[in-house]
C-alpha cells in the first residue's frame, strides 16, 4: 500500500483558497483528470479521490491524518484514459472515457463484492462526442455527428449494477457538451458546433427547443444551468475567445435564456483581473462558483453571484496547473499538475 506525502495545512493561498492537503500520484504516465466521489467500504461511505493518468486510474481513501492511501487501481493497456466521468448518486462505481484525441469508449470501473478485486465493464464504444454523469444515477452520451447522431441516457441501479437505456431525440447538429439544469432534474441542455443550445425533456426524450446564441464566441461550451422564475441561466466557457482590449479574455459567460421564446441575453462576462493573461483551457462549475485553468498555467475562480473573480492561484512549485475540479463530496477545489501532484483547497 502506498501512503502519500504529509499534508500541509497552514499555507494560505491568494484570495479565498486555503490548502488543506496534497499528495502525489507516483504514476509514470501523464496525469489527465481528478475527481472526488463517495465510495463505500465496510458498509461506510467515504469521500474518496479518483486520479486518472493515461494508463491507470486510482482510488485514494482518506486516513485520519489527512493523508491519502491508494486502495484500488485499474489499468488500461490498449486505449489511453481521457477523462473521469463521475455519476452522482451511484456508490462504488466511476466511469471513464478512453480514446486518443476523441472519445472511443466509456467504461465503468467497479470492484467485485467478494474479493474487492478491480473490474471494468465496457458501456459504450464508437465516435463519442460528449458524455456527462447526471443526478439520479444517469449517464448521457452522444455518439456520431450531424444526422447520424445517437443521444442516449443510461440509468444505473444504486449499486452500479443493472441498467436501463433510453434515447433522446438528436438535434441534427453535432453536440459539443451537455449540462444539467439545477432545480429541474428532467431537463438537460447541450451546446452544439453551430452555437445552438438545445433543451431536452429527459423523461420523454423530446427535443424541446433550439436557442441560437450570440456568434461573438465560437464553440461555446455549456457547463451548468439554473432554472429560476421561468428563465434559464446558463454558464458557458469560451475556449476560442480572443482577448479584447476592453474586457481582456472572457473565460466564462452567464447567459439568460427565455425557453419559451428562444431569446437570450448575456448578463455576466467573467474576465481576468488586471495583470492576468490567458485563455480558458479547462474548467468546472458547481453551484455559484466557476473555476478555470488558463493557458498561462494559473487557476482563477469566479463567484457568479458576486460577479467577479474571487481567487487567483498561480502555478505551485514552478509547475503550471493542468486540472481543476470542484469536489463532489464537499466544498473543496481539486487542483492537479501533469506530473501527478494533486492539491486540495478549501474554498
Amino acid at each position: 500500500t502506498e501512503i502519500t506525502d504529509l499534508p500541509a495545512r497552514d499555507s494560505l493561498n491568494p484570495g479565498s483558497l486555503q490548502l488543506v492537503s496534497k499528495f502525489k500520484n507516483p504514476s509514470s504516465s501523464c496525469s489527465v483528470d481528478v475527481s472526488a466521489v463517495w465510495w463505500e467500504r465496510a458498509a461506510a461511505k467515504e469521500p474518496c479521490i479518483i486520479t486518472a493518468c493515461e494508463d491507470v486510474v486510482s482510488l485514494w481513501k482518506p486516513l485520519d491524518t489527512l493523508q491519502w492511501e491508494k486502495v484500488h487501481t485499474w489499468h488500461f493497456t490498449e486505449v489511453p484514459v481521457l477523462q473521469i466521468v463521475p455519476v452522482p448518486d451511484v456508490y462504488n462505481l466511476i466511469c471513464v472515457a478512453l480514446g486518443n484525441l476523441e472519445i472511443r469508449e466509456i467504461r465503468a470501473l467497479l470492484c467485485s463484492s467478494g474479493d474487492e478485486s478491480e473490474k471494468q465493464v465496457l458501456l459504450k464504444s464508437g465516435n463519442i462526442k460528449a458524455v456527462l454523469g447526471l443526478t439520479k444515477r444517469r449517464l448521457v452520451s452522444s455518439i456520431g455527428t450531424f444526422c447520424n447522431q445517437q443521444v442516449q441516457i443510461m440509468t444505473f441501479a444504486e449499486d452500479g449494477g443493472s441498467k436501463d437505456e433510453q434515447l433522446l431525440m438528436p438535434p441534427d447538429e453535432t453536440i459539443l457538451a451537455f449540462a444539467e439544469v439545477q432545480g429541474m432534474q428532467d431537463a438537460l441542455l447541450g451546446t452544439t458546433t453551430v452555437n445552438n443550445i438545445v433543451i431536452w425533456n429527459l423523461k420523454t426524450g423530446q427535443l424541446l427547443k433550439k436557442v441560437h446564441i450570440d456568434d461573438s464566441y465560437q464553440a461555446s461550451v455549456c457547463h451548468r444551468a439554473y432554472s429560476e422564475m421561468g428563465l434559464l441561466f446558463v454558464v458557458l466557457s469560451h475556449p476560442c475567445a480572443k482577448e479584447s482590449q476592453v474586457f481582456g479574455s472572457p473565460v466564462f459567460q452567464l447567459l439568460v435564456i427565455n425557453p419559451k421564446t428562444a431569446q437570450s441575453v448575456g448578463i455576466l462576462l467573467c474576465c481576468l483581473p488586471p495583470g492576468q493573461a490567458g485563455r480558458f483551457l479547462e474548467g468546472d462549475v458547481k453551484d455559484h462558483v466557476a473555476a478555470a485553468v488558463l493557458t498561462s498555467g494559473t487557476i482563477a475562480v469566479w463567484d457568479l453571484l458576486l460577479g467577479h473573480c474571487t481567487a487567483v492561484l498561480p502555478p505551485a512549485s514552478d509547475q503550471s496547473w493542468s486540472l481543476v475540479k470542484w469536489s463532489g463530496t464537499d466544498s473543496h477545489l481539486l487542483a492537479g499538475q501533469k506530473d501527478g501532484n494533486v492539491f486540495i483547497y478549501r474554498y
Binding site: N201, M229, N258, P259, Q263
Partner: peptide, 23 residues
C-alpha cells in the same frame, strides 16, 4: 437583465414546451 428583450416569460415553460414538441 433587460427581461423585455426576452419576450413573455412563462413559469410553466417546461410543461408547455413538452406539450407542444413532437413526441
Amino acid at each position: 437583465c433587460r427581461t423585455a428583450d426576452l419576450g413573455p416569460i412563462s413559469l410553466n415553460w417546461f410543461e408547455e414546451l413538452s406539450s407542444e414538441a413532437p413526441p
